[in-house]
Amino acid sequence: MKLLARLFRSTLGQKYLMAGSGGVLVLFVVGHLVGNLQFFLPPAALNRYGHLLQSNVEVLWLVRLTLLAVVLLHIVMAIRLWASNRAARPVAYASSATSYGASLSSRTMLVSGLVVVAFLGYHLLHFTVRVESINGTPVAFHQLREPGTGYYDVFAMVVAGFQVWPVALFYGVGVGLLSFHLTHGVAALFQSLGGRNPVYAPVIRKAAHGLAAFLLLGYLSIPTAVLFGRGNDYLKHVVEHNARRLAQAPPGEEVAR
């Protein structure tokens, strides 16, 4: 218990938790992107992947709750550290803050982090909970079914979602800030966990930037492709298919679902 107390109370312990939770989230973000890049395969691939993730409820919720806990830990630690860091300098300098070797991303972690959290909230409501009122399109997300398999049609949903350009733009801002957050976050993670020395310090820095760039380009590629028309025909096909399906279905089925 003493170990836990020291972990949660000492500044270094809190930094470990910050870095550890951040690391888990980085892994998730990378995994999430790799999965989502199946968007560039035929629609069936992404839909099959979606079905795979959704079909095992126990595993799904275990992962979701774990991620939620990690996100909360990351946020709580960030706010606690922020508060104690602010308390450490009660009187501010009069001169406008200058950076001296500090990158912009390193000085704005809290802000970029909070925007990413807001974005995350929207993203979950948008694509996971599928609150229809916020997707800005007449297409009802929760009705989308892949013709043939009857799986939930993730591909069509993504296309429908990103065809709304303000939404795509907001995604752009969200992943932009996320990448920005990670240019510093990934490097700092190694520093906080002590995995940095003069030999590979420059490598870590470059790797962090490389990863951030990969995430940024990867995540941006999807809405961009949609705005350039990818999946438009497929979406129309699915929407029509679903309209036919719903018209044939006995009344009440949709509610049951």
């Binding site: 000492s10 104690s84 070797g101």
Partner: peptide
């Protein structure tokens, strides 16, 4: 030493690197 540093009320490192620079 770390625990004394905390008791003194210093903030935590956010790896901005400005310390190294000055």
């Amino acid at each position: 030493m770390v625990e004394q540093m905390d008791r003194e009320g210093f903030g935590a490192c956010t790896v901005t690197g400005s310390c190294e620079a000055v």
